[in-house]
Design a protein around this nucleic acid. Structure first.
Length: 638
RNA sequence: GGCCCCGUAGCUCAGCGGAUAGAGCAUCUGCCUUCUAAGCAGAUGGCCCCUGGUUCGAUUCCAGGCGGGGUCACCA
């Protein structure tokens, strides 16, 4: 029966000096297994002895459902619950009493257990951070193209990637954050060409434009000029001739030209030819082209850097596709030799993945050049060589689900040592209330605009409150920045990654209800009380007279705090920051309830004041840590 | 068409084998002679997409539908 005890999920670390301690639920669970053995002579598994948190309309902390035990106990659920309750309270010192409702056994944990726990975590800044597990996880996120600025989609990606990295770190991993930059290809050539033709030597400085937006503007300009050219061609004799020859009977003229756009770009367009020529010159290493490319990209990186800084995120290493796009060919050779790949008559190389319910997949073109996935194979290997990693997480939108299934399958078949630790953190696209974001229709929400907007909104709301007007201008701005970003970040991160989400700009700026600022506000209230207590000379203390019972609001808060380490752990194993977000909200909510129901500095006894202060301090600490895992900073006042 | 994801209050989302399914927003009603009302309490609002199956028990697991999205390029 030791087998389940040795499983790491049944432990978490309470203290910074690492020793492992069973949680109270594990204690109850193993005691339940013993009790069932003694009472009914039946051996049950931990899964069968499932413990849940008691619903708040009943008295108790934890609940055991006894229905499954009727099979062998040959008694009514209520009777079993009664017998089990007596046995557990007798054998588990941490349990004070129990009650039975239907077949549900509600267990009440002794006050002393909760106060002891609070004493243990008092003053421990690292509570919730698990000790190092000696493993490394590499997280790739953001991965932008360099032809235009970051938008709302990138923001979701960045927030997911960043908070995952923070959560993994808290869960004991070493973390390497990497970004793959798509800095080459036809898209950046379009920006380059438009700037070269129409830019008149302008620069971000000369126009006062944020430099990534400056480059993006030329990308847009290219599209405009191309559309003009295409429109003109459509009504020309040449265009009409193609229409007559190639239009399918069921197609309208308009539909035909819409579908024909790519072909036009590649085979007819003058601008298209110029852009493709530029790409060819780039690939040939033409110095002028390279210099222009470098200049444009540098502008973009400078601009991106500012956005990352505004969002409070960073990367340990950037990989550039211009340096990796030729990688992977040796892997293809090895794969051919080992029989993972096969070659077709035309010279193209394929993998047959049909037995893994996937398709045949090209890994090398017939002309010997590599495709997208070849490059990914190469990059995976290079990165592993650079850092080593037990787990590799790719934060990429769910439109690439199939791609990653194939990539992981290939890496597995190639026998890469990290293949078992690969994970695609797939997230749903972000929609607007008006529908999908479409760059062509100009409905894309720009990241920088969004950040500015949420801060402006916080400023507006702050004016009405007048709470921070005494502070210096810089302090005020710092607070407003924290509040605005908390609203934005929490609004996005609270949604489970897998779900496609609707982003309503109006709601993202809300400061009330289930929002980041609501949680910050709980923290600020605590900080305010702690300052006042210091002035009054009241020191926090978890020591409590055993005679005075803990209030339900206090108990609820402590029980919430108790769940924090386990929350961090599951969020890390699931790569799901929304679990931490929802936890923080629940904790803040419980605090606000406590705060309005019970007075801290005017509590009945000195001892109660000190105890509540200690509880508050612990809540503040967990809120700060938890929100920190989401990349959200806490202000001291608001 | 094959495969994958999603379907819970008017809206945005939690819950994912267990008790009468929860929050926030919106609508309505109360609570500031001060530990910050960005808060709290209450009211209103649900065939948990449908139909079967497994189970003592299904919103939760399985199968089949329906609706929405994605993806099936020698594109990235």
């Amino acid at each position: 029966m030791d087998s389940y005890v040795s499983s790491p999920t049944f432990y978490f670390k309470l203290f910074s000096f690492s020793f492992q301690q069973m949680t109270i639920t594990d204690l109850i669970q193993s005691a339940t297994i013993n009790a069932i053995q003694e009472l009914y002579g039946e051996t049950i598994t931990p899964e069968q002895a499932s413990i849940t948190v008691t619903r708040k309309e009943f008295e108790g902390d934890f609940t055991i459902v006894t229905f499954p035990f009727t099979r062998f106990a040959k008694k009514k659920p209520g009777e079993i619950a009664e017998e089990l309750g007596i046995h557990l309270v007798k054998n588990v010192p941490q349990l004070d009493r129990f009650n039975v409702v239907q077949g549900f056994l509600n267990l009440v944990v002794a006050d002393s257990f909760w106060t002891d726990f609070l004493m243990q975590i008092a003053g421990n800044q690292d509570f919730g951070r698990l000790s190092k597990n000696g493993k490394k996880v590499m997280i790739e996120y953001c991965s932008p193209n360099t032809n235009k600025p970051l938008h709302l989609g990138h923001v979701r990606n960045i927030l997911l990637g960043w908070s995952c990295s923070q959560i993994c770190e808290a869960a004991g991993y070493d973390v390497v954050k990497v970004q793959v930059v798509n800095d080459r290809g036809i898209a950046i050539c379009k920006s380059m060409l438009a700037w070269q033709k129409f830019g008149e030597g302008k620069t971000p400085e000369s126009t006062g434009t944020k430099s990534d937006h400056f480059v993006g503007d030329y990308y847009v300009l290219f599209e405009q000029k191309f559309q003009e050219e295409y429109k003109a061609w459509q009504s020309s004799a040449a265009g009409q001739q193609v229409l007559d020859e190639k239009r399918k009977p069921e197609q309208s003229d308009e539909q035909f030209f819409k579908d024909f756009k790519n072909t036009y770009f590649n085979e007819y367009s003058a601008l298209g030819r110029e852009a493709r020529d530029m790409l060819l010159r780039w690939e040939a290493g033409d110095p002028d082209t390279k210099a222009l490319w470098q200049q444009m990209n540098q502008w973009v990186y400078d601009g991106f850097g500012k956005t990352y800084q505004a969002l409070g995120v960073s990367f340990d290493k950037f990989y550039y596709e211009s340096e990796t796009y030729l990688l992977g060919k040796d892997i293809v050779e090895q794969g051919l030799a080992s029989g993972v790949f096969y070659k077709k008559e035309d010279g193209s190389v394929w993998a047959d993945l049909t037995d893994a319910k996937l398709d045949h997949k090209v890994v090398m073109r017939s002309d010997g050049t590599s495709v997208y996935i070849t490059q990914d194979l190469g990059t995976a290997q290079v990165r592993y060589h650079d850092f080593g990693a037990d787990k590799v997480v790719y934060v990429v939108a769910d439109e690439q689900n199939y791609h990653f299934q194939v990539l992981f399958e290939l890496l597995k078949r190639l026998g890469e040592p990290y293949a078992a630790g690969l994970h695609h953190l797939s997230y749903g696209m972000v929609d607007l209330p008006t529908g999908k974001m479409k760059s062509r229709e100009g409905t894309v929400v720009d990241a920088d605009d969004l950040i500015a907007e949420v801060i402006a909104e916080a400023r507006e709301a702050s004016k009405e409150r007048g709470e921070i007007t005494e502070l210096s201008k810089t302090e005020q701005e710092d607070i407003l920045r924290k509040i605005g970003l908390a609203a934005l970040k929490f609004h996005i991160i609270k949604v489970g990654p897998q779900k496609r989400m609707v982003f309503d700009p109006k709601e993202s700026v809300d400061l009330q209800g289930q929002t980041g600022p609501h949680i910050q506000y709980a923290y600020v209230r605590i900080k305010s009380v702690l300052r006042k207590a210091a002035d009054l000379g009241i020191a926090p203390s978890a020591i409590r007279n055993p005679q005075s019972a803990i209030e339900p609001q206090e108990r609820e808060l402590i029980a919430q705090l108790y769940r924090f380490p386990a929350t961090v752990e599951t969020a890390a194993t699931n790569y799901d920051p929304s679990e931490v977000a929802n936890y923080c909200y629940d904790l803040a909510k419980a605090f606000h309830k406590f705060f309005t129901d019970l007075s801290i500095l005017k509590a009945e006894t000195e001892e109660a004041k000190a105890f509540r202060l200690q509880l508050c301090a612990a809540v503040a600490n967990v809120l700060k840590t938890g929100m920190g895992l989401l990349g959200i900073e806490m202000p001291e006042r608001m």
